[in-house]
Design a protein around this nucleic acid. Sequence first.
DNA 1: TTACAATTAATAGTTACTAATAATAGGTAC
DNA 2: GTACCTATTATTAGTAACTATTAATTGTAA
Lengths: 202, 202
Amino acid sequence: MIIQNLSKMERQKKIKEYLLKDPFLSDKKLAELFNFSVQTIRLDRLEMGIPEMRKRIIQVAKNTSSIDKVKSLKKEEIIGELIDIELGKNGIAILKTTKSMAFNRTGIIRSHYIFSLADSLAISIIDAEVALTGIARLSYKKPVYAGQTLVAKARVARKRSNKFLVSVHVKSNQKEVFTGKLIIFSVKDSSKKEGGINENSY
Amino acid sequence: MIIQNLSKMERQKKIKEYLLKDPFLSDKKLAELFNFSVQTIRLDRLEMGIPEMRKRIIQVAKNTSSIDKVKSLKKEEIIGELIDIELGKNGIAILKTTKSMAFNRTGIIRSHYIFSLADSLAISIIDAEVALTGIARLSYKKPVYAGQTLVAKARVARKRSNKFLVSVHVKSNQKEVFTGKLIIFSVKDSSKKEGGINENSY
DNA sequence: TTACAATTAATAGTTACTAATAATAGGTAC
DNA sequence: GTACCTATTATTAGTAACTATTAATTGTAA
């Protein structure tokens, strides 16, 4: 299954996607897959800041792959898939909706699935051992239908002592379907930061 | 000979132990740790049939990455039990919380389970074929611990055309743990429909 | 045609190995 | 003492999957 005739941007986007799905692909295999030279693939990786295969594998093994940085939630506790995170700042999670999340009759996703995505992402980005939701304001903009993929972006808008105001925007096909403002309380601080921002997530 | 054999055996045993704890150790690092040459470590690994570092890491990575990243809420887990309802007016639902709904570390129930209870109850008391949550204000008063039983009471506070303001109060042991105000939109009226009781959420 | 981006090639150096062979230190057996 | 044996260490050649750098080639648009 060789892919051809791709623009540079398209190729880079695809490389990203492929590596998110399968971090075990070497440059050589990618080159064969996309029918470009190994050097081109390497340049692409460099431009996108994606580390080499061996480092990616180590990340996966250590679970340093963004998910492990999360202290409040373990990976099984996160609804959706966490794809990028900067602790204390922001994060992105994706949820692929299915029929089982929807009302049978309409195929519309039940609101609490969307809230669950937003809420667990919001909690994930708090840099604390224990984080609890206190107050939330939710706004559902558009119905989401089973099969649509939701992209949630959360951002710490304000911090006062142990109180975090987190805003979450959920989109499907570039269109906003949900926004929420959550006030989250951190119960314990885990401030033994080990600087390394990014490389973990791409 | 015996003494040396013993030390060799001891070393190999230790290597095994070290690698079980930390599969990321290279031969070089092991050699430094045990103060033996890299070649000796290699021979030890060979004798014990332990693969090289990179292969060990791949094993670890494949194991951990096989974990299902997308965890969704199961129906039985969120629904709770609808114990009383007056369509268009009010309703009561009960949810027995379990460990699987809680943070492992603290045993505190994840907020979206409580919201799910409140939201699906609120939707179910709306006398409409399709009801969707539009806006919600949530307030978590107290942490709920796994094992506690939650009682949710929902009431239609106001109705304007297809817009319902529903307030939900959730208690555990007579104490309020959550309140929410939800604005729910009915999309179609079901007052004439047969079996007008909501399959929507319950 | 020139200019520039995109792509490919080529080269040297790295890590963490495998595989094979050889050298050395120490003891044992007769 | 010499032959033998084991454990250990060293050496060499070769591998995959890179990084980093420089250079050459191809394509395309002004």
